[in-house]
């Protein structure tokens, strides 16, 4: 089983993105679950959620404490929230940022880093700062755990062609770095 924790801010579309990942896995005949956790629902406040992927039914209906992968929708969260708490060794990090890898202080457990300026791509493609569909493309690229074509199809059906284009752009624009 693969466990992912997603960190974002209210209004960035974290829950909708996670739903697309679950739907993409289910469409492939696999199993996935996602539980969102809100504080109080309002734009801009930190939100997070827990995603699990497996080839067999997932019985645990709990929060994720030791994620294999972190998806961070907003790099300002790095200084604000304990994003890296409990991550497994060899963890994967996907980060929406305009910073360089050398500007980031990452814990030793992180082995693979995907960096993408999803905010810029979303502003270009959608005219709005909603980075979720761009990050979906990046997630496909960084993890390889779900298929880009299925995700794009689902995004197009739910959010329209501009978002599907943002998804493809996110896939293409992600810088993948093996830090150890």
């Amino acid at each position: 089983m693969l466990e992912v924790r997603l960190h974002g801010r209210g209004g960035q579309g974290l829950v909708k993105a996670a739903h697309i990942i679950v739907k993409a896995a289910v469409e492939k005949g696999k199993y996935a679950t996602f539980i969102p956790f809100f504080g109080v629902e309002r734009k801009g406040s930190p939100v997070y959620g827990f995603l699990r992927l497996d080839d067999k039914p997932i019985r645990l209906k709990t929060q994720v404490y030791n994620p294999d992968c972190l998806v961070v929708f907003d790099d300002t969260l790095l200084e604000e929230v304990e994003v890296f708490e409990g991550i497994k060794d060899n963890a994967v990090l996907l980060l929406n940022t305009n910073r360089m890898l050398s500007e980031l202080a990452l814990p030793a457990e992180v082995a693979t880093v995907g960096l993408v300026n999803a905010t810029d791509i979303a502003l270009q493609q959608l005219g709005r700062n909603i980075p979720n569909t761009t990050l979906l493309g990046a997630f496909c690229r960084v993890t390889g755990w779900i298929d880009l074509d299925i995700v794009q199809k689902l995004v197009a059906a739910e959010f329209g062609p501009e978002n599907a284009a943002a998804c493809a752009a996110g896939y293409a624009a992600t810088t993948l770095v093996q830090v150890r």
Binding site: H19, V22, Y31, A32, F34, I35, P36, K61
Partner: peptide, 10 residues
């Protein structure tokens, strides 16, 4: 509530 009401799965 939340642990199932808001959980999405197959």
């Amino acid at each position: 509530g939340f642990y199932l009401s808001h959980l999405i799965e197959r």
